[in-house]
């Protein structure tokens, strides 16, 4: 329940960041706007990766519920790897954009874009840390309390981060400015 409350609260956080971006997405110089800078095919691949990590997360939760430690760890590890791929993709994307001249302070568009996606990236990173911690803890079977429940909590968080990306992908990338 605490996790659900926290996620409800996070809706307002990302809502604020997305709204800020929506407000400012048109405020940039002529050649460095969203339509020029985004690489849609690349981003859709990394979106797909994140989506698939949700699937592996579900399988991890499912395995944990059946007290199958080995499969739980396997799926958790794969989820973390997919998440890391996504973050890696984001870092690559940022680097490319930066080379093209879009720094954090270049325009209102760039500031709000980096803030929004950066916040999301940090959330994914925190999720990866939690996943790895879970794997490490599981190996030494030191989870206090109910293991499956803990995995489920992390799972909820992970899906939420994915869901936020579903929204960001559509509103930020796909809808033309």
């Amino acid at each position: 329940m605490a996790m659900w409350l926290f996620l409800g609260s996070e809706c307002l956080l990302f809502g604020g960041l997305i709204s800020t971006y929506m407000l400012y997405r048109g405020r940039h110089s002529a050649e460095l706007g969203p339509d020029q800078i985004f690489d849609i095919p690349f981003t859709s691949v990394s979106s797909f990766v994140l989506l698939m990590s949700s699937l592996t997360m579900v399988l991890a939760v499912s395995a944990a519920a059946q007290k199958d430690d080995r499969r739980t760890n396997l799926w958790l590890t794969i989820t973390a790897l997919l998440g890391a791929t996504f973050v890696g993709g984001q870092v690559y994307e940022f680097t490319v954009m930066y080379r093209e001249g879009l720094g954090f302070t270049t325009s209102l568009f760039s500031s709000s874009f980096y803030t929004l996606t950066g916040f999301h990236g940090v959330h994914v990173t925190v999720g990866i840390i939690m996943l790895m911690a879970l794997v490490g803890i599981n190996k030494r079977s030191r989870v206090p309390g109910d293991k499956a429940e803990v995995v489920e909590m992390v799972g909820l968080y992970w899906h939420f981060v994915d869901v936020v990306w579903i929204i960001i992908f559509t509103l930020v990338y796909l809808i033309p400015a």
């Binding site: 996790m3 939690m130 911690a133 206090p144 309390g145 109910d146 803990v150 909590m153």
Partner: peptide
Amino acid sequence: EGGGTNKELAT
């Protein structure tokens, strides 16, 4: 409820 440590991490 939860008992989860990671809830706290996530908080």
